[in-house]
Amino acid sequence: MQIMTPKARSDVHVNLPALQKLDSMLIEVLDSMVDTEYWYVESGSRSGGRGKNNGERQTKKWWLPSPCVPEQGLSQFQRKRIVFQAKLVHQILKAAKSINEQVLLQIPIPMAVMDALPKSGRSSLGEDLYHAITTDYIPIEEIFVSLSLKTEHSVLETMNRLEGALFAWNQRISEERSRRSPARHSWKFMKDSSSELEKMSACIERVETLIQLLKSRFPNLPPTFIDVVKVQYNEDVGHAIVEAYSRVLVGVAFSILSRVAEIMLEDDLVKKPNTPMSSLKFDLSSDVYLAGITETPPGHIRRSLMDQISMVDGRFDAVVKKRGAKQLMW
């Protein structure tokens, strides 16, 4: 005789305790921020601290209190302590974000939304980005630095286009593999189909790499269209709990890092009053603000995407004419 006992789902059983541990670590970090050398005042009232040129520092988040530091700046001990706390929070953020991305991958796209998504990678990406992705001559890093990413809206739009192409290509590969049958098709047809699927798989890898570059460069982007509809139409309670919990932890961790960056910026403005504020940037890997940071990876020349495509298309067309290869239609 067997007695049925309740058993937790494996994904929830693993992820939920991990998120609870990350939650407690965040609380411990916040509780450790006592006896500090910095303090906060309401925006518009900076009489108690020193800032750049003893004046108010303009900030986009005017509703948040402004950090203040002593006239001589933070001590070396205090600065190292803040950096240690920031690095710990950064690791928590990466762990929570990884869990969130994993659970979003497990949530299926609603059938009602699939019909609204692009049916091909070309229509989703647009001609310029499509040619850059499907051509091996252009490194992903150069495509990344050539994208127009001036605003959060443009970055999110690019992410939506890339994810739409991923969905279309993955659907195409699944359909081709499910209906492929050696008994129904000739060997030549099977060979051409396999070659096309291999090219499509290579493009999927390039798009996934580009998405990871965008996520690392813009860590606090709003959710993409596909992620939003997944959460909105999700009917799995376990997925909903893990996704919401991890998303909240990511937001809290990012807010803490933002406040730490403001403190470090204020400290540098006091210690280096003649340094332009636009040239200061906090880097967790070196715990200092770095001047003159460029987004262009070393060894790559920043060129416009159209220049790259024009250069590549000339060589690609020559290869096509020479070998009689077919143009990609997906």
Rank of each mutant, 00 (worst) to 15 (best):
T151P: 02
T151F: 13
T151C: 12
H153C: 04
V155A: 02
L156P: 03
M159E: 02
R161H: 03
R161E: 00
A165H: 04
L166A: 05
L166P: 09
A168K: 07
N170R: 14
R172L: 11
R180E: 05
S181F: 12
S181R: 08
S181H: 12
P182I: 08
W187S: 14
W187F: 12
K188L: 05
K188I: 12
D192A: 14
D192R: 13
S193E: 04
S194M: 08
S194G: 09
S195E: 03
E196C: 06
E198H: 15
E198V: 14
K199F: 10
C203S: 06
I204H: 03
E205A: 12
R206G: 00
R206P: 11
R206T: 09
V207R: 01
V207N: 00
V207C: 01
E208Y: 11
T209M: 04
L210M: 08
Q212T: 05
L213F: 09
K215W: 02
R217C: 06
P219S: 08
N220Y: 09
N220S: 08
L221C: 06
L221W: 10
P223R: 10
F225V: 07
F225L: 05
I226V: 11
D227F: 05
V228H: 04
V229P: 00
K230G: 04
K230W: 07
